[in-house]
Design a protein around this nucleic acid. Sequence first.
DNA 1: TCTCTTGCTACATTTACTGTAGCAACATGC
DNA 2: GCATGTTGCTACAGTAAATGTAGCAAGAGA
Lengths: 108, 108
Amino acid sequence: MAKQTSSRSRSVRGSRTGRPIMALLDLLGRRWALRILWELRDAPLTSRGLRTACDEASPTVLQARLSELREAGFVELGEAGGYGLTALGRELCETFMPLHRFAERWKR
Amino acid sequence: MAKQTSSRSRSVRGSRTGRPIMALLDLLGRRWALRILWELRDAPLTSRGLRTACDEASPTVLQARLSELREAGFVELGEAGGYGLTALGRELCETFMPLHRFAERWKR
DNA sequence: TCTCTTGCTACATTTACTGTAGCAACATGC
DNA sequence: GCATGTTGCTACAGTAAATGTAGCAAGAGA
């Protein structure tokens, strides 16, 4: 539907050390990235639904993160509309699912 | 050694929804937060050592993140100097250790 | 056609991070 | 006792990223 920020370029320092974990930590360490994956964890959401789920975060960042996550192969836009996790994305999501239990025990 | 930004206040939207997971995702979704935990994963580092490990990220953010992570109880400053993970922090770190394996398979 | 929802963008304002410099406190060596 | 080097940490100007509000084009349904 549009041409989206020819990403590829912008990357926080340390992303290109050759170690994939760094690139991943960098990608996931951007605002709303983790949250987006989390909100999509068990069902696809429309862009607007996602925005609501993410506490009305601004569409600008959401869109930016979605593009990055799509480029990374974690999220996809179904032809019927709505964002959902790819198989890879679902896998990723499951690797940090234990965070939920951890957070509950942590409480603050 | 100093008094540090009386944090407490600043929090990305969605942190106070009552759901601890949101607060956690918020905290970990700030720049360098995940990276810091990762770099401390198996040994304490001095502030300078950490900076080096983090690709010379600016001390300003590093210090800010460290304060937040300390306040959250994940990181501590040993009296002998040097930052290390608390028991809780080590536990947290282990919950997203599988990311490493995932990242290797992902590669980009 | 009018209405509603979809994905997505523009843009001015505010907030966060970067980069560089440097401080006070404490060691170590000389 | 006085350089030298380290620690944790801060200041601050400049730049990049996020927020908030508005709104667009395209498609679906009535």
